[in-house]
Amino acid sequence: MRKFFDLLWTDIIKQKRSLVWPAAFLAPLITEALLFLDFYLRRDYILNRAAKEGLSAWQTLVLEHHLTALWFITLPMAVTVVCALLYHAEHASGGLRYTLSLPVGKGRLYLSKWCTGAIFLCLMLLLDALMLAAVGKIFRLPGGLDYQLLMSYIVNQAVAAIGILSLQMWLSSVTPNVILPLAAGFIGITTSLFLAQDQNIARIIPYAHVLYTMPLPGENNRLALEGGIFFAAFFLVAGLLCFSKKDVTE
């Protein structure tokens, strides 16, 4: 187990001064900037309209953050970019063939990369949640900070996004061409915007699950949670098997 944590540590150290950090943190920063602008320009209108629909101020903040500030698109895109960059760093430096010429099994290396991606996802969600709470406080939303709402929101997003992470990690590991996993991810995300309207179709598209993560009345969070867990496990196992059998020729 210690060996695995040492490997995980090296995978995180490899990202020092790399583009993964700005890629991971720019997404919440941009989203929160949009949300700030949204509330700065029309706070009272948004809160009055939401109150008529029976939503609390903090629920409204989550709704605006998720849909108006486009977090439901930005989050899957950021996950796609982070996964692509994690493997691109290896492909560009010959790191895979080097690491695998050390006493490191292919399966262990794949899991370590997957965990690194998951750590970046968690950091991204944590930063986003902190800034989301800060925006709520800045605009003096009525009622205290709704911790339960925020926690549910973070967990739902993490579970839904981990399905995308597993898929994108697999795609990024199979080809040294960074464009392919990026293109697959972006096409998947944009087409899922239309297909996600139908819940039966959304159920089978991992990119669509983030749309269903708002812990609000009437939202089908189960779709996001079940889909996220299923696709995370499915693509993790598929990626592990594929990577373990792969000849390292690049």
Binding site: D6, I13, K16, G95, Y98
Partner: peptide, 21 residues
Amino acid sequence: PSYYGNLTAVENLEITRRILG
């Protein structure tokens, strides 16, 4: 040669050292 250009020589060697223990 395989190396991480964003890291220093010591940091690159530290990766190998950690893996080998």
